[in-house]
Protein backbone atom coordinates (compact mmCIF):
# COMPACT_ATOMS: atom_id res chain seq x y z
CA UNK A 1 0.00 0.00 0.00
CA UNK A 2 1.21 3.50 -0.84
CA UNK A 3 0.13 6.45 1.30
CA UNK A 4 0.72 10.05 0.30
CA UNK A 5 0.14 12.14 3.41
CA UNK A 6 -0.26 15.91 2.95
CA UNK A 7 2.62 16.05 0.44
CA UNK A 8 3.98 19.54 -0.29
CA UNK A 9 6.76 20.25 -2.77
CA UNK A 10 7.94 23.56 -4.24
CA UNK A 11 10.71 24.45 -6.68
CA UNK A 12 10.59 28.03 -7.97
CA UNK A 13 6.88 27.94 -7.13
CA UNK A 14 4.62 25.52 -5.24
CA UNK A 15 4.09 22.33 -7.27
CA UNK A 16 2.33 20.06 -4.79
CA UNK A 17 0.16 21.71 -2.16
CA UNK A 18 -1.06 19.09 0.26
CA UNK A 19 -1.74 15.90 -1.67
CA UNK A 20 -3.21 13.06 0.39
CA UNK A 21 -3.99 9.79 -1.34
CA UNK A 22 -3.88 6.06 -0.68
CA UNK A 23 -3.18 3.39 -3.29
CA UNK A 24 -4.28 -0.03 -2.09
CA UNK A 25 -2.18 -3.16 -2.62
CA UNK A 26 -2.80 -4.63 -6.07
CA UNK A 27 -4.66 -1.54 -7.25
CA UNK A 28 -3.88 0.38 -10.46
CA UNK A 29 -4.30 4.13 -10.06
CA UNK A 30 -3.79 6.62 -12.86
CA UNK A 31 -2.92 10.24 -12.18
CA UNK A 32 -4.18 12.71 -14.76
CA UNK A 33 -3.83 16.46 -14.98
CA UNK A 34 -2.61 19.38 -17.06
CA UNK A 35 1.11 19.68 -17.84
CA UNK A 36 3.28 21.10 -15.06
CA UNK A 37 0.79 20.32 -12.35
CA UNK A 38 3.08 18.02 -10.39
CA UNK A 39 2.10 14.51 -11.54
CA UNK A 40 5.67 13.34 -12.17
CA UNK A 41 6.87 15.12 -9.03
CA UNK A 42 4.32 13.17 -6.98
CA UNK A 43 5.46 9.93 -8.65
CA UNK A 44 9.11 10.70 -7.88
CA UNK A 45 8.34 11.17 -4.18
CA UNK A 46 7.08 7.56 -4.13
CA UNK A 47 10.56 6.00 -4.30
CA UNK A 48 12.50 8.91 -2.83
CA UNK A 49 13.83 10.43 -6.07
CA UNK A 50 12.36 13.66 -4.68
CA UNK A 51 11.79 14.40 -1.02
CA UNK A 52 8.64 16.34 -0.05
CA UNK A 53 9.18 19.69 1.66
CA UNK A 54 6.35 18.75 4.02
CA UNK A 55 4.28 15.64 4.52
CA UNK A 56 5.28 12.03 4.01
CA UNK A 57 5.04 9.11 1.63
CA UNK A 58 4.73 5.63 3.14
CA UNK A 59 5.07 2.25 1.51
CA UNK A 60 3.58 -0.57 3.56
CA UNK A 61 3.75 1.74 6.57
CA UNK A 62 7.45 2.56 6.09
CA UNK A 63 8.28 6.23 5.55
CA UNK A 64 10.09 6.88 2.26
CA UNK A 65 10.76 10.54 2.99
CA UNK A 66 12.56 9.81 6.28
CA UNK A 67 14.55 6.83 4.99
CA UNK A 68 18.08 6.92 3.68
CA UNK A 69 20.94 4.55 2.93
CA UNK A 70 20.05 0.89 3.37
CA UNK A 71 16.41 1.52 4.32
CA UNK A 72 15.79 3.58 1.19
CA UNK A 73 17.61 0.97 -0.89
CA UNK A 74 15.26 -1.69 0.55
CA UNK A 75 12.21 0.39 -0.39
CA UNK A 76 13.55 1.02 -3.90
CA UNK A 77 14.03 -2.71 -4.47
CA UNK A 78 10.29 -3.09 -3.90
CA UNK A 79 9.51 -0.43 -6.49
CA UNK A 80 10.03 -0.58 -10.27
CA UNK A 81 10.07 2.73 -12.14
CA UNK A 82 9.29 3.08 -15.85
CA UNK A 83 10.67 6.42 -17.04
CA UNK A 84 9.00 8.70 -19.59
CA UNK A 85 11.77 8.25 -22.17
CA UNK A 86 12.86 4.85 -20.80
CA UNK A 87 16.15 6.30 -19.39
CA UNK A 88 18.14 3.33 -20.68
CA UNK A 89 21.89 3.52 -20.13
CA UNK A 90 23.33 4.56 -23.51
CA UNK A 91 26.64 2.78 -23.08
CA UNK A 92 25.06 -0.58 -22.18
CA UNK A 93 23.30 -3.06 -24.44
CA UNK A 94 19.80 -4.34 -23.75
CA UNK A 95 21.04 -7.31 -21.68
CA UNK A 96 23.22 -5.10 -19.46
CA UNK A 97 20.41 -2.57 -19.08
CA UNK A 98 17.90 -5.17 -17.95
CA UNK A 99 20.43 -6.83 -15.61
CA UNK A 100 20.70 -3.56 -13.64
CA UNK A 101 17.07 -4.14 -12.61
CA UNK A 102 18.13 -7.21 -10.62
CA UNK A 103 19.39 -6.99 -7.03
CA UNK A 104 23.14 -6.30 -6.70
CA UNK A 105 24.09 -9.89 -5.89
CA UNK A 106 22.42 -11.29 -9.00
CA UNK A 107 23.60 -8.45 -11.24
CA UNK A 108 27.20 -9.33 -10.34
CA UNK A 109 26.59 -12.87 -11.68
CA UNK A 110 25.49 -11.48 -15.03
CA UNK A 111 27.04 -14.35 -16.98
CA UNK A 112 25.21 -17.11 -15.11
CA UNK A 113 22.49 -18.99 -17.03
CA UNK A 114 20.04 -18.20 -14.23
CA UNK A 115 20.45 -14.44 -14.71
CA UNK A 116 20.32 -14.79 -18.49
CA UNK A 117 17.05 -16.73 -18.08
CA UNK A 118 15.53 -13.98 -15.91
CA UNK A 119 16.52 -11.29 -18.41
CA UNK A 120 15.07 -13.29 -21.33
CA UNK A 121 11.85 -13.94 -19.36
CA UNK A 122 11.47 -10.20 -18.65
CA UNK A 123 12.03 -9.35 -22.33
CA UNK A 124 9.51 -11.99 -23.42
CA UNK A 125 7.03 -10.60 -20.87
CA UNK A 126 7.13 -7.31 -22.77
CA UNK A 127 6.84 -9.03 -26.17
CA UNK A 128 10.45 -8.59 -27.21
CA UNK A 129 12.47 -11.41 -28.76
CA UNK A 130 15.66 -11.80 -26.68
CA UNK A 131 17.50 -13.32 -29.64
CA UNK A 132 16.92 -10.14 -31.62
CA UNK A 133 17.38 -7.38 -29.03
CA UNK A 134 19.68 -8.78 -26.34
CA UNK A 135 22.95 -7.39 -27.73
CA UNK A 136 21.54 -4.21 -29.25
CA UNK A 137 22.34 -0.76 -27.92
CA UNK A 138 19.44 1.58 -26.97
CA UNK A 139 20.30 3.79 -29.96
CA UNK A 140 19.53 0.85 -32.28
CA UNK A 141 15.97 0.45 -30.94
CA UNK A 142 12.74 2.23 -31.89
CA UNK A 143 10.91 4.42 -29.34
CA UNK A 144 8.36 1.69 -28.58
CA UNK A 145 11.07 -0.95 -28.13
CA UNK A 146 13.04 1.32 -25.81
CA UNK A 147 9.94 1.81 -23.65
CA UNK A 148 9.44 -1.96 -23.52
CA UNK A 149 13.08 -2.53 -22.54
CA UNK A 150 12.58 0.10 -19.82
CA UNK A 151 9.53 -1.85 -18.67
CA UNK A 152 11.51 -5.13 -18.74
CA UNK A 153 14.21 -3.52 -16.57
CA UNK A 154 11.52 -2.38 -14.11
CA UNK A 155 9.86 -5.81 -13.81
CA UNK A 156 12.89 -8.14 -13.95
CA UNK A 157 13.42 -7.83 -10.17
CA UNK A 158 9.73 -8.74 -9.58
CA UNK A 159 8.81 -5.52 -7.71
CA UNK A 160 5.69 -5.19 -5.56
CA UNK A 161 4.99 -1.71 -6.91
CA UNK A 162 5.34 -0.32 -10.45
CA UNK A 163 5.46 3.39 -11.20
CA UNK A 164 4.84 4.45 -14.80
CA UNK A 165 5.80 7.99 -15.82
CA UNK A 166 3.99 8.85 -19.07
CA UNK A 167 4.38 5.30 -20.46
CA UNK A 168 2.79 6.07 -23.85
CA UNK A 169 3.93 9.63 -24.51
CA UNK A 170 5.32 9.94 -28.04
CA UNK A 171 4.10 6.51 -29.15
CA UNK A 172 1.84 5.71 -32.09
CA UNK A 173 -1.62 4.20 -31.39
CA UNK A 174 -0.42 0.62 -31.99
CA UNK A 175 2.47 0.93 -29.54
CA UNK A 176 0.16 2.75 -27.10
CA UNK A 177 -2.25 -0.18 -27.20
CA UNK A 178 0.67 -2.61 -26.78
CA UNK A 179 1.94 -0.82 -23.67
CA UNK A 180 -1.59 -0.60 -22.20
CA UNK A 181 -2.07 -4.32 -22.76
CA UNK A 182 1.32 -5.05 -21.15
CA UNK A 183 0.41 -2.98 -18.07
CA UNK A 184 -2.79 -5.01 -17.71
CA UNK A 185 -1.02 -8.36 -18.32
CA UNK A 186 1.69 -7.56 -15.76
CA UNK A 187 -0.95 -6.50 -13.23
CA UNK A 188 -3.01 -9.66 -13.75
CA UNK A 189 0.02 -11.94 -13.65
CA UNK A 190 1.90 -10.41 -10.71
CA UNK A 191 -0.86 -8.53 -8.80
CA UNK A 192 1.51 -5.59 -8.64
CA UNK A 193 0.39 -2.21 -7.25
CA UNK A 194 0.65 0.34 -10.06
CA UNK A 195 0.64 4.13 -10.25
CA UNK A 196 0.45 5.50 -13.79
CA UNK A 197 1.05 9.14 -14.65
CA UNK A 198 -0.45 9.80 -18.05
CA UNK A 199 -2.00 12.35 -20.37
CA UNK A 200 -3.85 9.64 -22.25
CA UNK A 201 -7.36 9.55 -20.77
CA UNK A 202 -8.46 6.57 -22.88
CA UNK A 203 -5.51 4.55 -21.62
CA UNK A 204 -6.16 5.62 -18.04
CA UNK A 205 -9.83 4.65 -18.24
CA UNK A 206 -8.90 1.29 -19.77
CA UNK A 207 -6.23 0.20 -17.30
CA UNK A 208 -7.18 1.83 -13.99
CA UNK A 209 -9.16 0.74 -10.97
CA UNK A 210 -9.25 4.39 -9.92
CA UNK A 211 -8.22 7.73 -11.40
CA UNK A 212 -6.95 10.87 -9.69
CA UNK A 213 -7.01 14.32 -11.27
CA UNK A 214 -4.34 16.75 -10.12
CA UNK A 215 -4.73 20.49 -10.77
CA UNK A 216 -2.71 23.34 -9.25
CA UNK A 217 -0.88 20.86 -7.02
CA UNK A 218 -4.06 19.58 -5.40
CA UNK A 219 -6.26 16.58 -6.02
CA UNK A 220 -9.44 17.65 -7.74
CA UNK A 221 -10.96 14.22 -8.23
CA UNK A 222 -10.34 10.65 -7.06
CA UNK A 223 -12.70 7.90 -8.14
CA UNK A 224 -13.44 4.94 -10.38
CA UNK A 225 -13.58 5.22 -14.18
CA UNK A 226 -17.40 5.18 -13.93
CA UNK A 227 -17.41 8.05 -11.44
CA UNK A 228 -14.90 9.90 -13.63
CA UNK A 229 -17.15 9.64 -16.69
CA UNK A 230 -20.20 10.71 -14.69
CA UNK A 231 -18.56 13.66 -12.92
CA UNK A 232 -20.22 17.05 -13.24
CA UNK A 233 -16.98 18.94 -12.56
CA UNK A 234 -16.17 20.83 -15.81
CA UNK A 235 -12.43 20.16 -15.50
CA UNK A 236 -13.01 16.43 -15.00
CA UNK A 237 -15.43 16.51 -17.91
CA UNK A 238 -12.79 18.24 -20.01
CA UNK A 239 -10.58 15.22 -19.51
CA UNK A 240 -13.38 12.67 -19.90
CA UNK A 241 -14.85 14.30 -22.98
CA UNK A 242 -12.23 16.68 -24.23
CA UNK A 243 -13.87 18.31 -27.19
CA UNK A 244 -17.23 19.00 -25.58
CA UNK A 245 -15.95 20.47 -22.36
CA UNK A 246 -12.51 21.88 -23.15
CA UNK A 247 -13.78 25.42 -23.70
CA UNK A 248 -15.65 25.51 -20.40
CA UNK A 249 -12.69 24.06 -18.55
CA UNK A 250 -10.23 26.48 -20.13
CA UNK A 251 -12.33 29.37 -18.94
CA UNK A 252 -12.53 27.93 -15.43
CA UNK A 253 -8.77 27.22 -15.25
CA UNK A 254 -7.96 30.74 -16.44
CA UNK A 255 -10.20 32.17 -13.75
CA UNK A 256 -8.50 29.99 -11.13
CA UNK A 257 -5.05 31.03 -12.41
CA UNK A 258 -6.05 34.66 -12.02
CA UNK A 259 -7.25 34.05 -8.47
CA UNK A 260 -3.98 32.29 -7.56
CA UNK A 261 -1.93 35.10 -9.10
CA UNK A 262 -3.91 37.66 -7.16
CA UNK A 263 -3.43 35.70 -3.94
CA UNK A 264 0.32 35.34 -4.45
Amino acid sequence: MIEYIDVHKAFDRPVLSGVSLTVETGETLSILGPSGTGKSVLLKTTNGLLVPDRGDVRIDGQSVSNSDGGALGGIRRKVGYVFQYAALFDSMNVFENVVTGLPDGEAKRARSPEVLGKVCDALEDVNLDPAVVLRKLPSELSGGMRKRVGLARAIVGRPEILLYDEPVTGLDPVNTATISRLILEIRDRTHVTSVVVTHDVEQALEISDRLALLTHGKLRFVGTPGEFRASADPVVRAFADRRAAAEAALQLVEEEDKEIEEES
Binding site: D90, T100, D104
Partner: peptide, 10 residues
Protein backbone atom coordinates in the same frame (compact mmCIF):
# COMPACT_ATOMS: atom_id res chain seq x y z
CA UNK B 1 16.95 10.71 -16.26
CA UNK B 2 19.61 7.98 -16.40
CA UNK B 3 20.97 9.13 -13.01
CA UNK B 4 17.43 8.99 -11.58
CA UNK B 5 17.18 5.50 -13.09
CA UNK B 6 20.33 4.46 -11.20
CA UNK B 7 18.84 5.79 -7.96
CA UNK B 8 15.55 4.03 -8.57
CA UNK B 9 17.40 0.76 -9.26
CA UNK B 10 19.06 1.05 -5.85
Amino acid sequence: EQIDALHSLG
